[in-house]
């Protein structure tokens, strides 16, 4: 947990800002020097991972409410974008934003009842919601006798631009989410989120409208998850319900965040980079044992480093200062 000493809440550490800006500028320049499709694609995927992990972090990392259903919003965003572009001829960037809006339109009514649930119940309810949306999109056409989502046949999008395009799109989304997380962490809302995590009833008792704060966090998270889903749909050019509503998307978000450190600014960055970088070569080398190895890594990390990479480092730093 990053502590903000009183009085310094509004001043950013100068060095950190400079460093972040330098990284950002470097990342903008990379495609100018590196024309390798593979490298840009890999970087793009890392950015997407960081963005997704940040979405989950804003909601679950800070509040401790384990959302096991973000795949619902990823899928909603993917389908909204696909349908808008294919059926409505809506331009890409407008489509992804509209996809985010659709996701919020789901997140608020879904969040209102579910965010009153605690612990495992919230986790299971959100999971059920995600699976229900997947099933609904899968079965919709058959049950209603229409031709809308095209069930398991999926939807083909217009052929997307180059990897470089997605590199920049995800770089922007990732940066926006990073800045939002930074601002939220220092804002009133950030304190309320952490308070909810620690002792929700006590937070409510000292004036925090906990449900409202949770809904905000949930809606922000849903909006961006859907935007990312929309971009990814365009990148993939072909989507089916089983791909974009997959529980594996949820799990990836959770694990990246957990690996890096939940409720920390840098956790998603570290976790997503780590997971993407190790899983790509693993997947290439051991396509059949890949998931087994990932399973082993998950278990080992949880048992050995329950606070995640960033959390463990922070703790180290605190301990070595002799607190």
């Amino acid at each position: 947990m990053i502590q903000t000493p009183p009085g310094r809440a509004f001043t950013l550490p100068r060095k950190a800002v400079l460093l972040a800006a330098a990284v950002f500028v470097t990342l903008i320049l990379v495609p100018a020097f590196c024309h390798q499709g593979y490298a840009l694609r890999l970087m793009g995927m890392i950015f997407m991972g960081i963005a997704l992990a940040s979405c989950w972090n804003i909601m679950s990392g800070y509040t401790g409410y384990i959302d096991f259903g973000p795949a619902a919003y990823f899928g909603i965003g993917a389908y909204a974008t696909a349908l808008l572009m294919v059926r409505g001829g809506v331009p890409f960037f407008l489509s992804i934003v509209l996809g985010g809006v659709v996701a919020v339109a789901f997140a608020v009514p879904v969040g209102l009842p579910t965010l009153r649930l605690r612990g495992a119940y919230f986790a299971i309810a959100t999971f059920a919601f995600a699976e229900a949306t997947r099933q609904a999109v899968l079965e919709w056409d058959r049950v209603l006798g229409v031709n809308f989502f095209q069930g398991s046949h999926g939807i083909t999008l217009p052929i997307g631009p180059t990897h470089q395009f997605f590199y920049y799109t995800f770089l922007v989304i990732m940066t926006v989410l990073f800045v939002i997380t930074y601002l939220v962490e220092r804002s009133r809302m950030g304190y309320a989120l952490k308070a909810i995590h620690e002792a929700e009833d006590a937070a409510e008792l000292i004036g925090v409208n906990t449900l409202k704060i949770k809904i905000y966090a949930y809606a922000i998270s849903a909006f961006f998850t859907a935007v990312i889903g929309g971009v990814d749909a365009y990148w993939l050019t072909y989507i089916t319900p089983n791909d974009v509503f997959s529980v594996h998307i949820t799990i990836k978000m959770v694990i990246m965040c957990l690996l890096g450190g939940m409720g920390t600014l840098l956790g998603p960055v570290v976790g997503a980079s780590f997971l993407t970088l190790i899983s790509e070569p693993l997947w290439a080398r051991f396509p059949y044992d890949y998931l087994i190895i990932i399973g082993v890594i998950i278990v080992l990390v949880i048992v050995a480093m329950p606070k995640g990479i960033v959390g463990t480092l922070l703790e180290w730093k605190v301990d070595s200062r002799g607190t």
Binding site: M1, Q3, T4, P6, R188, Y191, A192, K194, A195, H197, E198, A199, A202, A203, I206, G207, V208, N209
Partner: peptide, 17 residues
């Protein structure tokens, strides 16, 4: 208490909200 927040931050939440 919000155990992982500092004493001051605990009080701050009350003052803000």
């Amino acid at each position: 208490p919000f155990t992982r927040m500092t004493v001051a931050e605990n009080v701050l939440v009350g003052a803000m909200y």
